[in-house]
């Protein structure tokens, strides 16, 4: 499955899909989409990269990427962001929003507005952590399906 047409198409399409997935994750509190959707789009771009390349290339490329560490970082970060609400409030309380924190802590305008990226509080952090978790999990499933492939049928 590694013909020249597929390789060229993948080389052009993969950066666009990855940028679109990152955009959906980062703008989760403003536009449709969120952590799960953006992570799924990002993982589909990585799956395109995995399917369209040779076995040895993928193996040497993904040996240095700690996907299980990403998965754990996503789960623990999500729980930690939820536990931040214990500082005076309840679990899952949005404490960073409207507090003047420099990242994602700006004042949210009420009513119809164009949408400012520096708002959202813990929702934006939760979007990013869930996105990291989903992309690591789905990519590792596709990667393990690819890596258990028998060597003698590698031509296809």
């Amino acid at each position: 499955m590694t013909t020249t047409i597929i390789k060229t198409t993948t080389k052009i399409l993969t950066p666009l899909i990855l940028v679109f997935g990152s955009y959906i994750i980062l703008h989760g509190h403003l536009t449709p989409g969120g952590g799960f959707q953006g992570g799924a789009v990002f993982a589909s771009g990585l799956a395109l990269l995995i399917v369209a390349n040779k076995y040895e290339t993928i193996k040497t490329l993904f040996e240095k990427v700690p996907l299980s560490v990403f998965e754990s970082i996503g789960a623990l970060g999500f729980l930690g962001m939820a536990c931040l609400g214990f500082a005076g409030y309840t679990f899952f309380k949005n404490v960073i929003a409207n507090s003047g924190f420099p990242i994602f802590g700006g004042k949210t305008p009420v009513g119809i507005n164009p949408g400012y990226l520096n708002t959202g509080g813990t929702l934006s952090y939760m979007n990013i952590f869930v996105g990291i978790k989903v992309l690591a999990g789905l990519t590792s499933i596709v990667l393990i399906f690819f890596l258990i492939m028998r060597r003698e049928r590698d031509e296809w």
Partner: peptide, 19 residues
């Protein structure tokens, strides 16, 4: 928009009301 401080109502339900 007042309680969860996000423009996207779906995200504020998924991550705040129904966390």
């Amino acid at each position: 928009q007042i309680e969860a401080s996000a423009n996207n109502v779906v995200t504020s339900i998924v991550f705040d009301y129904r966390g």
